[in-house]
């Protein structure tokens, strides 16, 4: 039993070191510790399902221990910067002030194609538009565009954009969503009055939203077509 505990801890640490050595490009939107726990959990939990000779308690304890280690490592990461750096690494700037850092790319084993693919996923198709590109600890790339390519926002234009608030779906699939009425503080009678005004019954509406600006355009329900 104690052997099992030590083995789990050793393998957990070994797997984290391995994932850290493999680098950010192997991770794919998970922190190294999360990836390790996901991989190990699936294996540990599946083993006694396949092998009925194996005592269930070994697997159950390993699963619990892995979960505890995962929580503990995230708590320690939150509290201690050094621990976070050791376990999760640190973000790497691959485009610094418009200049591609090829050494950093080599260190990360990140190809130009990988970088371009990540930029395209961020809707950036020309690398010249990028001021900063940062490879995060979970392997994703964060992008900051050069000021001349930054999309125009109301603050840049010196205007105040109207705050429409969050649109709530008050009718969904022909049914009134009571929860949404409550959260947007809308009275049912107001909704009924609006339905009367647009000459529709709720059952005829697929979706209707309500925000600070009032009701949105209703999307009507279509009858099932025979294909």
């Amino acid at each position: 039993m104690a052997t099992l505990l030590l083995r789990t801890v050793i393998l957990f640490l070994l797997a984290i070191v391995s994932v850290r050595l493999m680098g950010k490009r192997q991770i794919g939107e998970m922190q190294p510790t999360e990836l390790v726990v996901t991989i190990l959990l699936s294996e540990v939990a599946a083993a006694p399902m396949q092998d009925i000779d194996m005592p269930l308690i070994n697997s159950a304890l390993s699963v619990l221990l892995l979960v505890a280690l995962s929580i503990l490592s995230s708590v320690l990461s939150m509290r201690f910067g050094r621990f976070r750096e050791a376990f999760d690494g640190h973000p790497a700037i691959v485009i610094n002030n418009g200049v591609l850092d090829q050494n950093k790319m080599r260190a990360l084993r990140l190809t130009m194609q990988d970088l371009m693919s990540s930029l395209r996923q961020k809707d950036v198709f020309d690398i010249e538009q990028v001021q900063y590109a940062i490879v995060e600890t979970n392997g994703t790339v964060s992008v900051m565009l050069k000021p001349e390519y930054t999309p125009l926002t109301s603050s840049l234009a010196g205007k105040k954009a109207p705050d429409d608030g969050l649109p709530h779906l008050v009718i969904c699939d022909g049914k009134i969503v009571e929860k949404a009425l409550k959260s947007c503080d809308l009275d049912l009678s107001v909704l009924k009055k609006h339905l009367k005004k647009i000459d529709r019954h709720e059952s005829e509406i697929m979706a209707l939203t309500y925000s600070k600006n009032g009701f949105g355009t209703p999307i009507e329900k279509k009858k099932k077509e025979n294909t």
Binding site: L5, V67, A68, L69
Partner: peptide, 15 residues
């Protein structure tokens, strides 16, 4: 974090 420590302590004792 405390739950995690509790689990580790419980597993250690059990083992």
């Amino acid at each position: 974090g405390y739950i995690a420590l509790g689990i580790i302590a419980a597993i250690s004792l059990l083992s």
